[in-house]
Structures are given as structure tokens and as C-alpha cells.
Amino acid sequence: MQLSDRCCGEAGTLGTARPDIANQVRFKKSEEITRGVRDLTGQDQAEPGQVKMLTACPACHQGLAKYADESGVTTDYIVVEMAKHLLGEGWQQRFMERVKAGGVEKVLL
């Protein structure tokens, strides 16, 4: 996915405290995601696994997941993608095995 720095509307209690504003923010984000998918794929909706948005924020991860059905875009944490790239597939299982066997001497961030 291309840089998409517009808020998803999930920040803090915005959605419950000011749904009128949050809905406008979500509408703009939806347009931006659709435009990004179209630029990358030539279609309005991505095929499964074709386009992914990355974030470091748990609230954004939750908020961005709301666009998956209409856009076909999945979300994940930046650090998870970095770990997959640096440590390879199966890194989570290996990490958990090391933790259970006595800990980890360094953490990659």
C-alpha cells in the first residue's frame, strides 16, 4: 500500500464521543484506501493477500480492519512485517519456543 497518513477515525474515543466527525474521517479514509488499491491493482477491491496496510498503533490496526470487506486490504503491524522479513516464516513459533526454554537475549525492534 502507498503512504496513507489520513486518520482512520478510530482514535481514542472519537467514534463514541463524536460519531459525526468520526464518520466523516472514516469516509475520507475509505476513499483514500480505494484510490490506493486502484493505483496499485487497477481494481476498486484488492484480491485476498494482494494489498496490506501496516501500522504501529493498536487502535489503527483495529480501525483499518473495518475497511477489509469493502477494500480487500488486510492490516498488520510494521514490526510483524519486519520480523517476517528479517527472521523468516515461522518466526513467531521459534520465538515462543525460545521464550519457554529460558528467554531471549535480544529483541529486534
Rank of each mutant, 00 (worst) to 15 (best):
M1C: 10
M1N: 04
Q2W: 03
L3C: 06
S4L: 15
D5K: 00
G9K: 02
G9N: 10
G12K: 10
T13K: 05
L14W: 11
L14Q: 13
G15I: 01
T16Y: 11
T16N: 07
T16Q: 13
R18S: 09
P19V: 10
P19I: 07
P19R: 06
Q24C: 03
V25D: 08
R26V: 14
F27R: 12
F27P: 00
F27D: 14
F27Q: 14
K28S: 10
K29Y: 08
K29I: 05
K29A: 07
S30A: 14
S30H: 10
S30V: 00
E31T: 02
E31A: 08
E31S: 08
E31N: 05
E32S: 08
I33C: 02
I33P: 02
T34N: 04
T34H: 10
R35Y: 08
V37D: 08
V37S: 05
R38H: 07
R38F: 12
R38D: 06
D39W: 03
L40A: 15
T41N: 10
T41W: 04
G42S: 03
D44V: 06
D44W: 01
P48F: 11
G49M: 12
G49C: 08
G49S: 11
Q50A: 15
V51M: 06
M53W: 01
M53C: 04
L54K: 01
L54I: 06
T55G: 05
T55A: 08
C57P: 05
C57I: 12
C57E: 14
C57K: 02
P58N: 05
A59V: 11
C60P: 05
G63H: 04
L64I: 12
L64V: 09
K66G: 15
Y67W: 04
A68D: 01
E70N: 08
E70Y: 03
S71F: 02
G72H: 02
G72R: 02
T75P: 01
T75Q: 07
D76A: 15
D76N: 13
Y77Q: 06
I78H: 12
M82F: 12
M82Q: 04
M82S: 05
K84S: 10
K84P: 00
L87R: 10
L87Y: 06
L87S: 08
G88R: 14
G90E: 11
G90Y: 10
Q92A: 10
Q93K: 15
Q93H: 06
F95T: 09
F95K: 06
E97I: 04
E97M: 07
R98C: 05
V99N: 04
K100R: 15
K100C: 03
G102R: 02
G102I: 03
G102H: 06
G103Y: 07
K106Y: 09
K106F: 07
V107E: 11
V107W: 13
L108F: 12
L108P: 02
L108G: 04
L108Q: 11
L109P: 00
